[in-house]
Nucleic acid binder design. Structure first.
Ligand SMILES: [Mn+2]
Ligand SMILES: [Mn+2]
Ligand SMILES: [Zn+2]
Ligand SMILES: [Zn+2]
Lengths: 143, 143
DNA sequence: GGGTTTATTGATAATGAATATCATTATTGT
DNA sequence: ACAATAATGATATTCATTATCAATAAACCC
């Protein structure tokens, strides 16, 4: 039963906020959990549409946003292209290596860098909350 | 004579590419050099407009882009807000601390982080070209 | 200088992603 | 079942960015 816990968390968040559980939310969340990470609204909409052509783009968009609010998902914006969403729950924080040729995303994490970032912020009287590190270049296949 | 060298570089780039030097380019470049860093197209357009109301928004936009192509300027995109442009020439590479409250940009650089990024990329068979590190949080005044 | 070529300009339109609107539908608590 | 109201889905709007195009003006040649 993959994703059961995630579904409960989402459902819980919805109740807490006085929102309502709907058939569409369930369908969209399940599709999101089954799909690739780094999916756009449009991608997810197209997947959902296959089995549920009655569900609209706006609903997919709204629910992805809601998943972000609930902490389940995270929105990633790269340049001017469409925002991508990835499942956050159950995944450690990570940054991305992004191939300039094929668009591949490689997830990485480096504790030393993370710690140095905090130190760097503090040295500048700055209280860090979150950060974004993206390294652009060429992946193994494309170099 | 601040900016003389920059102007020559821009002018040189224009000739190399078979483009043309214009009155507007000169005015826009000078305004950019005199203005704050981290300026938007609209900001620069409004500055230029004061003395030169005949110069259009599109021309300011195109020339900021051209400055980027020539390596003089750099475009910074934060979230979905308007792109900002900063003078690159004569400034070392740096990253930004960005205040979530007042929007302040603090320029920082950390050699250790820079080196670890290269190492991290290489460990993933990835050839790094450029990167973007943004730390969001609260500045001294806003924390 | 005069003439020719064509890059540039400026006003405006087009684009595209994200979000807002709103009448209708569906969920929740009673 | 009922009332209240959140959610939906189709569509419109927003907003930054980029494209279009007729008019203008650099740059080069003579
Ligand atoms: Mn990180
Ligand atoms: Mn850096
Ligand atoms: Zn690649
Ligand atoms: Zn601040």
């Amino acid at each position: 039963m993959p994703g059961v816990e995630v579904k409960e968390i989402f459902s819980g968040h919805i109740k807490e906020k006085g929102l309502r559980n709907t058939r569409q939310r369930e369908i969209i969340l399940e599709a999101f959990l089954s799909a690739n990470k780094h999916i756009t609204v449009e991608d997810l909409f197209n997947i959902v549409k296959k089995k549920h052509p009655e569900i609209g783009y706006a609903t997919v968009h709204r629910n992805l946003k809601l998943m972000c609010e609930s902490g389940l998902a995270e929105e990633i914006k790269i340049g001017t292209s469409k925002a991508k969403f990835e499942l956050k729950y159950g995944h450690e924080h990570h940054d991305h290596l992004i191939c300039l040729n094929c668009g591949k995303f490689i997830e990485v994490n480096d504790e030393k860098i993370e710690k140095l970032q905090v130190k760097l912020a503090e040295e500048n009287d700055f209280q860090p909350v979150r950060h974004k590190l993206e390294i652009y270049g060429f992946c193994k296949k494309c170099r």
